[in-house]
Simulated scan of single mutants.
Amino acid sequence: MTELLPWEYGAIALLFIWGGFVRSGLGFGGAVLTLPFLLLIRDEPLLFLPIISVHLLFFSGLTVWQAHRADARQGRAVSTVNWDFLRYALPLMIVPKLIGVAGVITLPGSLVTGFIFCTVTLYAISYIVGRPFKSNSARIDAIFLMIGGYVSGVSLIAAPLVVPVAASRVSKEQLRDTLFVLWFVLVGLKLLAFIATGVDLQWAQHLWLLPCAAMGHVLGLKFHAYSLRADTQLFFRYLGFALLMVSIAGLARFWMDWSAG
């Protein structure tokens, strides 16, 4: 990671705490609700995406493993992972995912950043109006999953497209861990592509960012237990407003940089 100012290090640390909280608390959103803020600090998607990917693999795998152990100890017959949904979703998402991965590696960083901010703006508006992307059609669900696979390959922010489909087919108790397994597979493919093409995985930065994400992870586990009982619609609305402001600022800077260039 290139040299940063002290306030930038502090802001990045806080954002990784936030990302860890969202990821373990909701089962999704660790990237979509963190990456736009990170890009305002340093407009380099390939600087942050490998770090976020490794964190997702580590904490999603840890959470599902802990849930499996708890099921075994308590003798619960129903897994926290809905494997039927995964067998339906993964074949639809993997090919678009690989196409998206090729895009993020070969396309200019500024173009990927602009795509991310445009996508997040749509997501933010859907949160604010309380109408996240959803459908009651198997065909539309399949389209959402395929587009989600591509968006995930480009930027790791596919959750608002994939989660509504999963939520309509998976019980609330299984939703988080099912999504974790899905992200684990998809992000694993992305990391393999990064390694194969020589992308720097920023291993040195994990020494200080992994503990930050771990702090958020612990807080998120507590929030997840609460969210199973409470209505989180207001929470998403506030997030939508915050994301919209950040996306507008990011798009304005992208436009100024593009005009100057």
Rank of each mutant, 00 (worst) to 15 (best):
A159C: 02
V32D: 12
G188Y: 00
S79D: 09
T178W: 02
E173D: 14
W203S: 13
V151M: 11
I116M: 11
R176K: 11
S168A: 15
L90N: 03
Y123L: 05
S137K: 07
A249S: 13
Y226T: 08
P160R: 11
D84A: 14
R237N: 00
W65N: 11
L5D: 09
K222M: 11
L33K: 02
T34Q: 00
G216T: 05
V170H: 08
S135E: 08
A260E: 10
T113H: 01
L86K: 04
F117D: 07
L49H: 09
L15R: 06
Y123S: 10
I157K: 06
L38Q: 04
L191H: 04
L145K: 09
L209F: 04
V163Y: 05
L192K: 04
I51E: 02
P36I: 10
P45V: 10
R23P: 01
A230C: 09
L189F: 13
L228A: 10
S137A: 00
E8F: 04
T232K: 15
I248Q: 05
P164C: 06
L244W: 14
G148A: 12
A252S: 09
T119K: 02
I140V: 13
F254Y: 14
F48N: 07
N136I: 03
F180I: 01
L4F: 15
H55S: 10
F235E: 05
R73D: 09
R76E: 12
L244C: 06
W83M: 13
V170R: 07
W183H: 08
F133Y: 09
R229T: 15
Y226L: 13
T121Y: 05
S53L: 07
G19Q: 06
G149Y: 12
W7K: 00
I99H: 05
T197Q: 14
V112H: 02
Y127T: 06
I105V: 15
L47S: 09
Q74M: 11
I248R: 01
F254L: 10
D141H: 07
